[in-house]
Design a protein around this nucleic acid. Structure first.
Lengths: 189, 189
DNA sequence: TGGGTCATGTAACCTGTTACATGATTAG
DNA sequence: CTAATCATGTAACAGGTTACATGACCCA
């Protein structure tokens, strides 16, 4: 239900191609909504069929033609309607295969688990660094003063920070617990 | 891919019915893996078709018959194989419609947003309380000493705590930011 | 007498994933 | 010369959601 609205939201700031949209969902937006390229193209097809967006083909030289999508009036209407629903229950439906594995890990290999946790912590630190880069690129201080969008950008970004920081803290604490176990005696596997 | 292994993991501790499995995924396990009842029944059908589980019908009086599933040898094998993969990339693919909405909220109604955030914070506090209840019910101190499973239970539970706590902190900070905005002057909508 | 729990599922639909296909240009 | 980037998509499949269907028992 929401990739649709993610696309409409982006197009509300100006026309974009499927390629550009897809890149955004895989880079600067990936900490709040991730999507596959093939999914974006399919969704754009549906949106156009339903009249929420229109498309124009832009010829290019030396590169493949672009197909640029623009939001329609009914698209804006649909976006605003969705926006004001503000329910959050769906976003709390967790599906975390990594934690699920750990839950069953008495049957697993504890060395593998430790190195996975280490990589997990490092990766979350990398993600935190990416958020800093995004902030520097899209949210210079002068923009925060001038544009009302920028504040909501910043708030969303903070959500990513809280999440990844929590992951780092949990991972680090867990590693400590597992190390103590090893030194303390009883070893599984 | 992982509901399958979640079911196998639970069945590794003893036989269960679809109804019981489904309840677990909607209550005590929901902070790490959430699943619909209909999904559990479908998955059990597939697992049985592939020989990972076997079923026995247990007649009951005054209640509908139970269909109890037990894990097979190849099921255990499949579980252990999955367990030792330990990759975490999937669990970091975010899809958070609430944050996405906020990202576009310059076009939305800020009073609605504030009350939604308030509810979000309260709900996350409720979830934290549920984790405490789960810990008290399943993880009394004596069990942590005695059973090696219990440690991994606890670690998974901590993940839920970190996550929901981060949500509370982010929501609270965001509310403060939005309040200041209102008092400071410029109002959207 | 109305709603909750116990207990099984099916069907239709929507969303997400993986893999494939094409083909020119550009940077290392 | 090889890999990445630009740019479009399709097809098949896997996984998740919503709604429906049945029926007895228990509690307020």
């Amino acid at each position: 239900m929401s990739l649709k609205h993610g696309i409409l939201g982006l197009l509300a700031n100006g026309p974009m191609t499927g390629y550009e949209l897809s890149n955004d969902f895989n880079t600067s937006l990936s900490f709040m909504w991730h999507a596959q390229q093939s999914q974006v193209y399919r969704e754009l097809g549906d949106l156009e069929k339903n009249g929420y967006v229109t498309s124009t083909i832009i010829p290019q030289e030396g590169k493949p033609n672009k197909k640029q999508y623009a939001i329609s009036d009914s698209g804006v209407q649909e976006l605003v309607h969705w926006l004001n629903e503000y329910h959050f229950q769906d976003s709390l439906k967790v599906r975390d295969a990594f934690v699920l594995r750990i839950f069953f890990s008495a049957r697993g290999n504890s060395d593998k688990l430790k190195s996975a946790l280490h990589a997990y912590v490092e990766w979350n630190k990398t993600l935190l660094g990416q958020l800093d880069a995004i902030e520097q690129q899209y949210l210079p201080p002068e923009r925060l003063q001038a544009e009302s969008d920028a504040l909501y950008w910043l708030i969303s970004l903070k959500k990513g920070r809280y999440t990844f920081r929590a992951n780092v803290e949990w991972g680090t604490e867990t590693l400590t617990i597992l190390e103590q176990l090893n030194h303390g005696g009883t070893q599984h596997e």
